[in-house]
Amino acid sequence: MRVNLTVNGRATAADDVWEGESLLYVLRERLGLPGAKNACEQGECGSCTVYLDGTPVCACLVAAGQAEGREVVTVEGLSRGDAPLPGAGPAHGDVSGEGLHEVQRAFLDAGAVQCGFCTPGLVVQAHALLAEADGVPSDADIREALAGNLCRCTGYEKILDAVRLAATRLGPPP
């Protein structure tokens, strides 16, 4: 089947989608957006977290057909300007870090990225937390918000640092 959806602000379509396929598979394998990661395919790890109509969800648990007509934002869509878009050159082109969102930059600066596999999901989920938060969220609130994102490398302390750093840099909401 064909699925029409908006991804990172662009209307797009995926063809030959199998009816039991997940949104994650569509994003990664059909639309060339490898940011959201596939680790568990059962909602346990959060590495596939994307926004669906403004709400963070596990893309592995959204049936592709359920994304018909809806708006998806992936980690690629959080960075500004020169963010790599499908067909716009190599996905790893921007090593300068320019154009990264504050949350992404904070993850780098705080040393919250080791192998990086969990990072895209954590960045989207942290982005969602900070979009709602008033100032720097409490540790309890950060831990609760990130409870569905597993990281096998960092031990989470640097991730908490990154969220606090991003919150400080973003400042109070306008």
Binding site: E19, L61, V62, Q66
Partner: peptide, 23 residues
């Protein structure tokens, strides 16, 4: 299928393929 948080786990892990999904 609604949230898919049960249905999609089954499909992803190949624990059974429904004849059809009714979204």
């Amino acid at each position: 299928i609604q949230g898919g948080t049960d249905v999609m786990v089954e499909i992803n892990l190949d624990k059974g393929r429904p004849a059809a999904l009714l979204d």
